[in-house]
Simulated scan of single mutants.
Amino acid sequence: MVSLARPFLADPAFVAKAAAGTPERINTCIGCNQACLDHTFSGRIASCLVNPRAAHETELIIGPTVTRKRIAVVGAGPAGLAFATTAASRGHAVTLFEAADMIGGQLNVALQVPGKFEFAETLRYFGRRLEETGVELRLGHRVTAPELAAGSFDEVIIAAGVTPRTPEIPGLDHPSVVSYLDVLRDRKPVGLTVAILGAGGIGFDVAEFLTAPADEDPLNVSEFLEHWGVDTAYANPGGITKPIEEAPPRQVTMLQRKASKIGAGLGKTTGWIHRTELARRGVQMIPGVNYQRIDDAGLHVRLTGKDGAVHDHVIAADTFVLCTGQDPLRELHDELAELETGSHLIGGADVAAELDAKRAIDQGTRLAARL
């Protein structure tokens, strides 16, 4: 017997596609829990990150369009992909512009993080959907506002994503300072001691990336079982044995401006895993930090103790990684407005909040269902 639950939220046609011999058409569950179990434990309707129609089928209706439109979409990240494929499936003529030479946007960044390799399945699915729905894909094309304004498009969708936010801290031009994109996307060299400024979802992703074993294989089942102390031979009570722990390749410290618990905003059903894993890897977490400056001595901070006393401290590290938020990329939207051409903002270009693929795919799908 094969028992499936979450995979049917991701794709209710799972069995039909498998039976037809077309498994590459299946919208694969990525095991994120963000819209299913996390919603359930928050008293919300369970749905699915990769399929926002799950449990919303009667309200989010995607049917043939009455009036066929020519639509331009800028950005092939999760929001742009969801909109383009949904709109094209309804009968619209969609052109998708992407400055990079591949689709995915921020999903390609997420793929670099240990435990998120399943996003490759989402990209595989969207790649197939682009072909099936007839979207005209223009990779390596940084489209301009005048080009869009002159293109006779009925609608323009801006899904250009986000850019890392640069905080106002003196010394950010120091050679020891890099952004999370420098680390995850561009693979810039990182030292053996690291301080991460920002402890949101991206900060945790960077910490996991920097402390993961160099030879970690996400598909190695026996390695996974040993790491988490799972005894499949049941030689120990409950099938639990002592986990095998490897020394992390780096010493990492995570810093947060807020005085609240670090990691409090992570997913309800998965946050504890990330906090536990980083604790096992010896990652130090310090909340309530006021950043002063960065120089050759390190990061100068001001800390407020539990007794209310303020202490100045210098955190020495080889590398300082900025995970201090994102800003939306809206330049095209503003330029089009000056040319008296309207456009819609979706995904990170609308609201820059972490790497929120759930909101991006939902927003793109819903807008495509309305237009």
Rank of each mutant, 00 (worst) to 15 (best):
L139C: 10
T67Y: 01
T67F: 00
N33C: 03
L329H: 02
Y234G: 05
H300Q: 12
D296Q: 13
A353W: 00
G105V: 00
E121S: 14
V314Y: 04
I244P: 01
E132W: 09
F119A: 09
R359Y: 00
A99L: 05
P243V: 11
H39W: 01
E354N: 12
G80Q: 04
G127E: 08
A145K: 07
I286F: 08
D362M: 07
V94Y: 04
E340Q: 13
T40P: 00
T241G: 13
F320K: 03
K242L: 12
K17C: 06
C32A: 13
V94C: 05
T86Q: 07
V73C: 08
G271T: 06
A10K: 09
V252Q: 08
G191A: 08
A72Y: 06
K17V: 05
R128G: 03
R68N: 03
L181Y: 10
T22V: 15
V177N: 02
C29R: 05
G198N: 07
E131M: 09
G161K: 07
E155I: 10
H227G: 09
F97Y: 15
E331S: 13
E338Y: 00
Q363Y: 01
A46S: 15
A233W: 05
P64E: 12
V194K: 05
A247V: 14
A212L: 09
A207K: 10
C36D: 10
D312H: 11
R44L: 14
W272N: 06
D350R: 13
K258W: 09
I30R: 08
M285F: 07
D295P: 01
H274N: 11
V162Q: 12
C32F: 00
T133G: 10
I26K: 09
H274C: 06
A352S: 13
Q106L: 13
N27E: 06
I157R: 09
I157F: 07
I294V: 14
P237G: 07
K242R: 15
E354I: 02
E245A: 15
E168W: 01
T270H: 10
H274K: 15
L123E: 01
R70S: 12
E277L: 14
P237C: 11
I294P: 06
I361N: 00
A297N: 14
V206F: 09
L96I: 00
M254W: 06
A264G: 06
A233P: 00
F209G: 07
I30G: 09
A247D: 13
A160W: 02
S89A: 12
F97N: 01
A84N: 04
V156K: 11
G198E: 06
A76W: 00
F126Y: 15
G308E: 06
V2C: 02
A279I: 02
R187G: 00
L181P: 00
E59G: 09
I103K: 02
H92R: 12
E246I: 09
W272P: 02
P146W: 01
D295I: 10
A145P: 08
T163E: 11
I202T: 15
A337W: 00
Q284C: 01
L184A: 12
F119M: 06
V206E: 01
G203Q: 08
K258D: 14
Y234Q: 11
L49C: 01
H274G: 02
A212Y: 04
G63W: 03
V289W: 06
E354A: 15
G198S: 10
I103C: 08
G161E: 09
R90Q: 12
I71A: 03
I361F: 00
S89N: 10
I196Y: 01
E223S: 15
I244E: 14
P249S: 09
